[in-house]
Amino acid sequence: MKEEEVNFAKNERFQLTMIPGTVAKSMRTCVVWQFIRFLVINIKMLVVVSKSH
């Protein structure tokens, strides 16, 4: 069974959700990709902060 499918079997409610697969999960802690996301998120947050002051 694929890693992302394991938890579907653990709880009836889990079956109605989406669970990330191996690639999606590894990207969450991929340092290079996350550094890019760090820059993007910071820019997005600064825009919201500037609109709020």
């Binding site: 969450r28 996350q34 550094f35 910071n42 997005k44």
Partner: peptide, 14 residues
């Protein structure tokens, strides 16, 4: 356009 969210290591660094 200004409401977003994502989970990852970048969020932790922030």
């Amino acid at each position: 356009d200004y409401t977003f969210g994502e989970i990852g290591l970048a969020g932790h660094w922030i």
